[in-house]
């Protein structure tokens, strides 16, 4: 199976993703410049973190019109796995591949620290190796991660089990004191209805090795591999 990592002007976590997939996970990975349109042969598309187009206008607002994004939309429609991390999540929101949007962190600060998350949905291709309600530790690094959606959308997300990660305490509590940025419902990551597109603010690619302080992020990439193997076996 092959991973493609989209590189926008201003992406800065693309090499971290590459390292994770190629060297830690041991799977083939290639960079895809945002002007390319051919995603054939890929099983997974990663939209890395960074500041695409300098976050001009709104985070992700300009990147969503990069030529590659049309292909990413088609890829997702056909069931391909798409993972947007941080700025990648913001791009998926702007592109309408996931519902809602991001507001500035309520503290107005760029927050860069480890946070705890509760895995609320383990029935996605990205989270099947976690256990139900597992508490994991992952770094966040963003100024605009204050997830916002109207009540109707939030209810729908909840009902369809599309909320995958929530900011939590180490005991799993979902309260305001463990919400780093003000996100609605402590939402840190959501998937689409089909479950093949995941957007998340925390950085799993930054915590996949012991030397980096934890391996909780590795599980996402491992899950993707196990999911794809299952699909291939079924064929």
């Amino acid at each position: 199976m092959k991973f493609g990592i989209i590189v926008f002007p201003g992406s800065n976590c693309d090499h971290d993703c590459y390292h994770m997939v190629k060297h830690v996970l041991g799977k083939p990975a290639s960079f895809i410049w945002h002007k390319e349109e051919d995603l054939s042969g890929l099983d997974v598309v990663l939209l890395p973190g960074g500041f695409s187009y300098g976050d001009y206008l709104r985070a992700g607002a300009i990147a969503r019109f990069s030529p590659v994004m049309k292909s990413v939309g088609k890829f997702a429609e056909e069931g391909g796995l798409v993972l947007g991390i941080c700025n990648g999540f913001q791009i998926l929101l702007e592109a309408g591949l996931l519902p809602g949007t991001m507001l500035r962190n309520r503290s107005l600060k760029f927050i860069c620290k480890d946070v705890h998350l509760r895995v609320d949905n383990i029935n996605t291709p990205f989270t099947l190796d976690y256990f139900e309600n597992q508490i994991i530790k992952m770094p966040i690094a963003h100024a605009e991660g204050n997830y916002y959606a109207d009540e109707e959308t939030l209810t729908k997300l909840q009902k369809n089990n599309q909320i995958v990660f929530r900011y939590s305490g180490t005991d799993g509590r979902i309260t305001d004191d463990v919400n780093p940025n003000g996100a609605a419902g402590n939402i840190a990551g959501i998937c689409n209805e089909q479950g093949n597109v995941l957007g998340m603010m925390p950085h799993p690619e930054r915590c996949g090795e012991k030397i980096l302080g934890g391996r909780d992020g590795y599980t996402i990439f491992e899950s993707i591999v196990h999911y794809s193997e299952k699909i291939l076996n079924k064929r």
Partner: peptide, 8 residues
């Protein structure tokens, strides 16, 4: 299309 995010 671009200049405004109608959600917010």
């Amino acid at each position: 299309k671009l200049l405004v995010n109608p959600i917010i």
